[in-house]
Structures are given as C-alpha cells and as structure tokens.
Design a protein around this nucleic acid. Sequence first.
DNA 1: CGCTGCATCTACGTATACGTTATCGCGAAG
DNA 2: CTTCGCGATAACGTATACGTAGATGCAGCG
Lengths: 238, 238
Amino acid sequence: MSPMSRVDELSSLDNAAPPDRFNQADVAYDGLKRLILEGALPAGAQMLEQEAAARLNMSRTPVREAMVRLRQEGMVEIRPRHGMRVLPVSARDMAEIYDVLTALEGIAAEAVARKGIAARPLAALRAAVAEMGKALETGDLARWAEADESFHSQLVQLSGNSRLIQMVGQLWDQAHRARMLTLQLRPTPTNSVIEHAALVDAIASGDPVIARQIHEDHRRRAGKMLVELLERLGLTQL
Amino acid sequence: MSPMSRVDELSSLDNAAPPDRFNQADVAYDGLKRLILEGALPAGAQMLEQEAAARLNMSRTPVREAMVRLRQEGMVEIRPRHGMRVLPVSARDMAEIYDVLTALEGIAAEAVARKGIAARPLAALRAAVAEMGKALETGDLARWAEADESFHSQLVQLSGNSRLIQMVGQLWDQAHRARMLTLQLRPTPTNSVIEHAALVDAIASGDPVIARQIHEDHRRRAGKMLVELLERLGLTQL
DNA sequence: CGCTGCATCTACGTATACGTTATCGCGAAG
DNA sequence: CTTCGCGATAACGTATACGTAGATGCAGCG
C-alpha cells in the first residue's frame, strides 16, 4: 500500500467549489448554446464572430473560444468566412444519436441497479415518473418532456460515471431541437409512465440485467418511432 | 537549434503554400496531443501557454485554442495560473472508460453484424487478428497492441456511426497511456486471437446479438483485468 | 443577356497590447 | 523554525491590431 496517496478521493469533487467567476468565454458559450437550444438560431443559421461579439458586448476573442467549444460538441460547424453555422439534425443523425444513447443509458441503468440506489434518489425517480403521468393527464406535452428529461438525467447522474454523464448530455443536446419539434407530432407517450415505472422497479429490486433490458427497449422504441416520424414527414433537417 | 530566424520572408521559390487547411491552432492541437499520448508530457505535467507557444513557434492565441480543445476531450485540465495540466488516469477512471467503451463497441459490433460486412473489410479484420497472433508468437507486445488497436478501430469505423466513432476515439485516447504502460505488466493476451476470431465469425455470419455479446464480454474482461492490475500495483495515476 | 476577370472589401487567423489578479519570495513576527 | 503579510512578478483573460485570403460586385467582353 502506498502510504500517502489516499488524499484525492473526496477532494476531487468539491474541489471545483469556487468555480472561478464566469468569464466572458463562458458567457458566450452559454449564450450561444442557449440561442441554439431554444431555437432562436435554427438549423442552418449562421453567425459571424463579430455579430456574436457585438450582440454579447464583448470582443471576438471569447466568442471565438465559445464557438470552438460548440463545434467540438457537434452543435455547429465553423466555416472560415461564414462564421459558425448551426448544424441541422437529420433523421439519420437522430438514428445515430439514439443508437448511442440506447447503449449509454442502458449501462447507466445497469450500473445504478447494480450499485443499489438510496431512498432519496429513488423517490426522486418515482416523482419524475409521477410527474410524467400528471402531465399526460392534463395533456401538457412540454411538462411531460421536462419530466422525461429529468428522469433520464437523474438516472445517468446516478451512475456516477462522469464520462457517461458528459457524453449523454452532449447527445441529448444534439437531439434536443428535434425532440421538441416532434413533441406535437408524435403519438402521445401514454406508455412512458408504465415503462419508466418498470425500470424503477427493476432498479429498486437490484436487477441490473433487467434494468438494462428495459431501458434499452424503451430507448430503442423511442428512437425508432422518432426516426420513422422524421422520415415520414420528410423532415430531413431540423 | 538556431536562434529564431523568422520562418518565412515571402521567399517566392519554395513557398509551396501548404494547404491552409492546417492552421496554427491545428498544429498546436496535434503537437500537444502527440506529446501527451507519447508520454513526453506525463500525467500531472503542466505547461504554460507561453511555454507551448515558444516551443511551437507561435503566439499564445492558437495555443490557447488547442488547449481548450484538449480540455473538452478530457486530456488536460486548465488551471488559471498554472497552464494546462495533463490529467492523470486513475484505476477508477479506467473503470469508467472501459464501462463506456464496452457499451459503445458492443453496439458497434452489433451494427456491423446487422448491416453485414463486405469481403474486403472482413478480410482486413481477419488480417488484424492474424497479425495479433503473429505478434504473440514473436512476443512482440507493442506489435500486438497495434494490431489490437487496429482491429477495434476498424470495427468501430465499420459501424458507420460518426458519433460512435468520435466518442470511442476520445475514450481510447484517454486510456492510451495506461494501456501502454500496463502492456508489459499484464498477463500475455493469449486468448485475444480466439476471442477476436469468434467475434469476426459472428459478424460474418450476420448474428448481431452474438457479436455484441462476444465483444462486450471481451471488453469487460479486458477492462476488469486492467483495473484490477492498476489497483493491485497501486498505480493511482498514470 | 450571360460570363469572366479584377478590384474591393470583409471576416478571419494570428500576433500583440494591456489591465487584473493570483502566486511566490522574502522578511518580520511569534 | 514556522507562520504570516506584503509587494513584485508573471500568467491569464480579453481587447485590439494587422495581414491575408476568400467573397462580392461590377465592368467589360462575348
């Protein structure tokens, strides 16, 4: 046993407690990403560095850094004389995204079931499922989507795998606009409550294999439905 | 090294205008990443923006952009007054990485088996497996590692899922140093030829379920072995 | 009326300037 | 000897400057 190397175990997490007062680059990143996710900058929209800088009241330098980050996340592309361009998401892209998401969230569910889950986060999961049900009763699709997102986000967080968390978040962001747009067009997700409840039960009973199975089936179905919907509607880019 | 004579003075002869496709930021990114992957910058090593800029004969601006990219890939962290710091990879990190890698490469194998594989890429896979075998016969571990990497890389590429490809590459890079270091310490991967051959057979026969199963088992075993090895040796950071 | 070549302009990539602030050395105090 | 305070320094975050290459528009030609 190395005598002195136990220090970093707990410190690594709260280490970032003072997250260094947001700098301009972070502001630019958050601002641009928000514009994209909320649809203010739709697919194909372009924005020059100077435009963004003027809009955000800063110089090009931090804007440029933000754009580099967004590019690496697959949100935009950068074309030398046309600024950044919001990447469209095609049906094929959604198929890619959901294939990967299915696998990643599947092992998240498996990990949580294997590790076991405390009473509090378990209750939070159940609350999210209940929220989905209530939203469906009132026909509030936006509310349902939020609860659904909350559920999946919590689940992935509970896996404790930081890389898994980061990657799922990235894919989720890429798919966000398409999901929002199809919310009104897709069949009502009446089964979602049952499916999620079954997943929670599998997790609570500590069955990793079943948990993974359920979640993969769930995601696979959702992805298939979405992709077919997009193809049927001829929505090649969102 | 000659004292800094400016690189180019618009000499008209061998200008050879290099494709502007590669800007200084790309050079910095490739250069720094290479230093890290090859171990010239080991875990914990720090490098200031100015240091890197001086070494690469450029200003801080493109260096900074490169560091931002590397940070997003999980290769380094950036600490305000200490430059970038090469992130150590702990046994816990390797566990995270292999968990995700297992899932991602599993669906890659599944996808390839489902889509079917042409004769040529199939032969390339078989060649990689054969190369592993030959490397083991001669006890050349580096050669085996290269063949192994080639096999997995080809497999993922064949999936055709660009997001999958990107993410696996990122995880692979993160794990690269630890894999290299443990190459000499781990038991000889005698089973790898059999396991990979079985995977290729499953793919060739178009059985996605089995292909995924085999690959997941394979990766899971490899990951488990590696993590236990690191823990046993007390190698908390590589 | 369309096409082509050139001049102009602009957005970008990179370098440099500048103010801020954390870090480090050092001396003093305990 | 250890701890603390403080000032000098330097690294960074951001702004700005600058040269270049690609885009744009127009004129002249077919």
